[in-house]
Design a protein around this nucleic acid. Structure first.
Length: 586
RNA sequence: GCGCCCGUAGCUCAGCUGGAUAGAGCGCCUGGCUACGAACCAGGAGGCCGGGGGUUCGAAUCCCUCCGGGCGCACCA
């Protein structure tokens, strides 16, 4: 509808005489927007005011000329000039009836568009370290990333969802050690668990698993394991010295091959758990990308060579540096440390190169806000690798604070007593969790109140929206119970007769859905879809309370039921993009 | 100190690339079930859009500055 009006205005503009609006002034963009006030019609354009500014002419005069040149169209009932020079468009009843017909005919497909023209977008999100179960902040990343991906897909992008598994580096060694120690406990060894190891309960299960697979083969006496190690948690000392010594000891005692087996078992267990957790949450990925695979395949070395060849590196203090300051970074970054070990950043560079080589036209990263300092250096690497910076985009998700009825929940990852995503899902349900997570803009801190999310009251938008959907089903059940039928096309033909303000409002809202998706996708703003669905549900509940659907007159009845069904379709489609179910009964 | 995010009704937040009298939910006050589900609806009170400059026909929106809050500034991952 909006595009139609834009096209009409374009033709009107082209038809204006040169002396009124010189070609040079015509470059202003044609903007059409939905109006807030029904008095101003359905859509309005500020084109005349922009042209007036460019040509130093009275905007209302320009508007009159545009109006005269505007082609006639059946969808437009009336056009008028208002205010400082707004051109207001009033749609015909037919145009709306037709659109409602489209909703009913297209069903699940309604609202989708090909705006993205099949362009390939890669969205990387969650990517939590595989050292334990996901917690509530990861839940926000998952819900947000999935919803943004779904929105992009709905408007015609070919979306590739990816999870980057940080399965390389020192933290993996600590993970393997922790798992092995749990295994030793299972074997019956007794000792004090290192303060720096991963203490979460989930590794006890891994220890159990190792015990089942390895039997007593990897058991070593605790006395032997801990003999002669530096103290853990020394006063003012370095705890890492202790854990490093312990890891070396483990490798010596069971051998590198066994150590890697332990690591593999722990990693597979945790990644499997994460995958299952996200799957239950309705969040799936096209690819789980292993960081380790980058070093194994030589991709890291290769990306370093590429940067060396293009002259963006130098050696200093025994380390190899990337000159990110050439691309706006505040300081250069180390890729290979003095001790020869590559940094995490080196992996990320290789990963960027990998993504570019896979041919994605757009790279979307979803990160925690605490990683914002990382954006510049990664963009720098991307540019140095000949990627186009405008195709690189990072969305930052602000922190989540968990509340229980107004009281802030303690979150301590160290002690392992933090609330996991699984706990949260179990307590408030997937639907409420998905919706609450994306209700706020991603750059807004989120206060997640579990009591509120659980409450079945009108404080909770989840049920408000779902209730509207269930109510439609209920009306249709009622219709059947009364032995009445519903004639869909008869209703469409009758739609023009629906003149109640609540009906007009609802029709207008339903028809706005495709535009909501376009804007929501462009802005990467799933919360705008939540707001829209709430408004739509509100319009429906209002209508429901004001008028009967199942009335004597068959025409009015069919038309009203069409409207109810169209509402239901849009709610269902919208909720699906957000990963929320649309129940028939509640 | 530097960088990013936030500051809008009592509370939690929308407000699209500047647009026509600033919106919603909750909370508060009044009402509404012998008709399709009251997990609902109708009405009301409540706002120098953090302060001050600037750009513009027009600023909550853009620019500058100050104030207040959050998060970052590793040869860690």
């Amino acid at each position: 509808m909006k595009t139609l009006i834009e096209a009409l205005l374009k033709r009107a503009l082209d038809a204006l005489p040169e002396e009124l609006v010189p070609t040079a002034s015509r470059a202003v963009g044609i903007e059409v927007q939905g109006t807030r006030d029904a008095q101003h019609g359905d859509f309005a354009s500020n084109l005349a005011m922009r042209l007036g500014k460019a040509t130093r002419r009275n905007p209302r005069k320009v508007a009159e000329a545009l109006l005269a040149a505007l082609p006639k169209d059946g969808a437009i009932a009336k056009v008028e000039i208002a205010g400082a020079g707004f051109i207001n468009f009033f749609l015909s009843a037919d145009a709306y009836s037709e659109e409602i017909g489209k909703v009913l005919a297209q069903g699940e497909a309604y609202g989708r568009s090909d705006l993205g023209a099949g362009r390939r977008v890669q969205v990387e999100f969650v990517s939590a370290n595989p050292t334990g179960p996901l917690h509530v902040a990861h839940g926000r990343h998952a819900a947000f990333g999935a919803s943004v991906s779904n929105l992009l897909e709905a408007v015609g992008y070919a979306v590739h969802r990816e999870y980057y598994i940080n399965d390389a580096g020192r933290q993996m060694d600590i993970l393997a050690l922790s798992a092995w120690l749990r295994y030793l406990e299972r074997c019956g060894e007794r000792f004090t668990f290192p303060s720096n190891a991963y203490v979460g309960e989930y590794l006890i299960a891994v220890g159990e698993q190792l015990f089942a697979a390895e039997g007593m083969d990897l058991r070593r006496p605790a006395a032997q394991v801990f003999e002669g190690l530096p103290p853990d948690e020394p006063q003012g000392g370095d705890k890492d010295v202790y854990i490093d010594a312990l890891m070396s000891r483990a490798r010596v005692l069971i051998g590198e091959a066994a150590f890697q087996r332990v690591l593999r078992t722990a990693l597979d267990g945790i990644v499997g758990d994460i995958r299952e957790d996200l799957g239950e949450f309705g969040v799936t990925f096209d690819c789980w990308f292993s960081e380790r695979s980058l070093s194994d395949s030589g991709a890291i070395d290769r990306s370093i060579e590429v940067l060396k060849h293009s002259g963006h590196t130098y050696s200093k203090d025994g380390a190899l540096w990337f000159k990110s300051t050439d691309f706006g970074d505040e300081k250069d970054r180390v890729m290979v440390r003095e001790n020869g070990v590559k940094t995490y950043f080196a992996s990320d560079i290789a990963y960027v190169l990998n993504k570019l080589e896979r041919g994605y036209e757009h790279l979307l990263y979803i990160w925690g806000a605490d990683h914002h300092g990382y954006i510049t250096r990664l963009r720098a690497a991307l540019i140095a690798l000949k990627g186009q910076p405008e195709r690189f985009e990072v969305l930052l998700v602000q922190i989540v604070s968990l509340f229980r009825g107004g009281e802030k929940a303690k979150m301590s990852k160290r002690s392992g007593d933090y609330v996991t995503l699984r706990d949260l899902r179990k307590e408030v349900g997937n639907d409420a969790a998905r919706l609450f997570y994306v209700m706020r803009s991603n750059d807004q801190h989120l206060d997640f109140d579990m009591e509120l999310a659980k409450s079945r009251s009108n404080e909770n938008p989840v049920y408000y929206i779902q209730y509207a959907h269930a109510r439609v089903s209920s009306v249709m059940r009622q219709l059947k119970d009364r032995g009445l039928a519903h004639d869909l096309s008869h209703g469409i033909a009758w739609l023009g007769n629906l003149k109640e303000p609540q009906e007009q409002q609802l029709i207008k809202r339903i028809c706005a859905y495709p535009e909501v998706l376009k804007v929501g996708a462009a802005q990467r703003a799933p919360h705008s879809l939540v707001y829209y669905l709430r408004d739509l549900a509100n319009d429906f509940h209002t209508y429901y309370s004001a008028h009967q659907f199942i009335v004597e007159d068959a025409g009015a009845r069919d038309a009203r039921l069409d409207l109810a069904l169209a509402t239901q379709i849009v709610i269902r489609n919208g909720l699906k993009l957000l990963g929320v179910s649309a129940p028939e009964t509640m």
